[in-house]
Amino acid sequence: MNILLQNLINGLTLGSIYSLVALGLTLVYGILHIPNFAHGALYMVGAFMTYFFMVDLGAHYWIAMLGSGAVVAALGVLCERLVFHPLRHSPPIHDKIAAIGILLFLEALVQMLWGADFRRMSSPFTGVMNIQGLIIPEQRALIIAGAAVLVVGLQLFLRRTMTGSTILAMAQNREGAFLVGIDANRVAMMTFAISGMLAAFAATLYAPINLVYPAMGHLVIMKAFVIIIIGGMGSIPGAVIGGMIIGFTEALGGFYLSNDYKDVIAFALLVVILSIRPQGLFTKGAH
């Protein structure tokens, strides 16, 4: 019983991180209708920025997280302005190629500045909580709580504020959004900023129980793609629930089946779900 609970906690941790990354990806997809392959690189840059702020500048973990969020949000806006905005009238394949270009560029840049080594990033939350025999490291609890706060905060922003609603409006009907006077550029920049910030927060939360290295975004972004395909491209609840499905499957599958194959399980699940529901779990008329 305790082992099962332990694994569920691990699944929740993984799922929280995946959900945050997938949320950013699905938001950008909803607006631009392109899969942003560079999103994994933003995640990786987020981890390095936090590392830089903490280790090189000696900032506190929270300050470093905020700083990293701001830098990666700005980087997202920069990508939109310099790369995706000029390509808005081009065929979609150009955006995809450009996104891969950004990915390769950012990885090479980080490797040039910090090298290809694996780095350890320590957070101030190294303790362990013991709740009636259930062992929860503080960092894992922080990931779960942090992700929950971010997901709820994002929902409130999107559904309750006029500014946030413009993102949903643009995703649901682009021309309708123009006709009520919503500025496409503002929405695109805002979406990239939020997406980048979520990636940086996810990376900062996860890095202390993982490692920081230039290729750290690869597997995460692959899984984020699996998640938004399972959840339905552009669907926000789909990204959260898809993230949890992958997180739990990986944690439980890794323990009960085989730890070596835990990364394969996500992709096997993708094949199974898509053969039953090809449009994804949460796709509605809008997409």
């Binding site: 006029m162 609603s165 949903l168 409006a169 649901q172 009907n173 309708g176 009520v180 919503i182 008329g285």
Partner: peptide
Amino acid sequence: RKLFPQMSVMQNLMMG
């Protein structure tokens, strides 16, 4: 019509 299909009638009006 170009409505926002996943928003309520009220939200659609307020987006106007």
